[in-house]
Amino acid sequence: MDNKPKSTLPVLVEPPKGAQPHGPLGHGYFLGETKRQQALPMRESLAKIKNWFRANSLWVMAYGTGCGGIELRPLTTARFDFERFGMAMRPTPRQSNVIIISGYLAVKSLKRVIRAYEQMPSPKWVVGLGSCTINGGMYWDSYNTINRLDLYVPVDIYIAGCMPRPEALLAGFGELMKMIKRGEANGWNHYLENFDWYKENQKKVINDWNMPDYNW
């Protein structure tokens, strides 16, 4: 194997603060707040109704990146049973609303995560599970795992622990549902507003970028 020159150091900039104003309760670009819709009298109530539907029917992308995937399986079984909250596992990104980054994320997996995340229809949410997604966790000095997930995809809620037990996961999902109902889970808007910043960060760690800039 030939020794190519080392890649340049990434210069990470903080994401631009002061995001542009959303519609009511977290409606952003993909929900198309047109002028006509902004003039609707019921738009706040309609947004609340839509968010209630979304919060009570979270479909989770069945994709485990790290060891935390083992904590997702008990959720579908008799002991914890997240289907009683209307959640279900969907094996295809086209039908999922939530993607769970379950633990350490290798750069190779990050590429797949980005593809899957961008293929999910909006609105969509990201749950960072375990310490590894927050700050690298016990794999912080591994040569091939990322340390901060929120540099590459927008994270709506973190569930800390190594690993968090399924009860903690259920509590995190409950908090995510509350955030969706309040219209605060806006990571997907943040991703679109700071698209260039996210893409710059992603391309710094993914050296063989052989996919389109946005995966439809």
């Binding site: 990434p10 000095d141 990322i146 710094k204």
Partner: peptide, 18 residues
Amino acid sequence: DFDTVAYMNSHHPSRPGR
């Protein structure tokens, strides 16, 4: 002779406060 810590610090920086 591959220094993983230096590699991580240069490629995947930690969140401040570790």
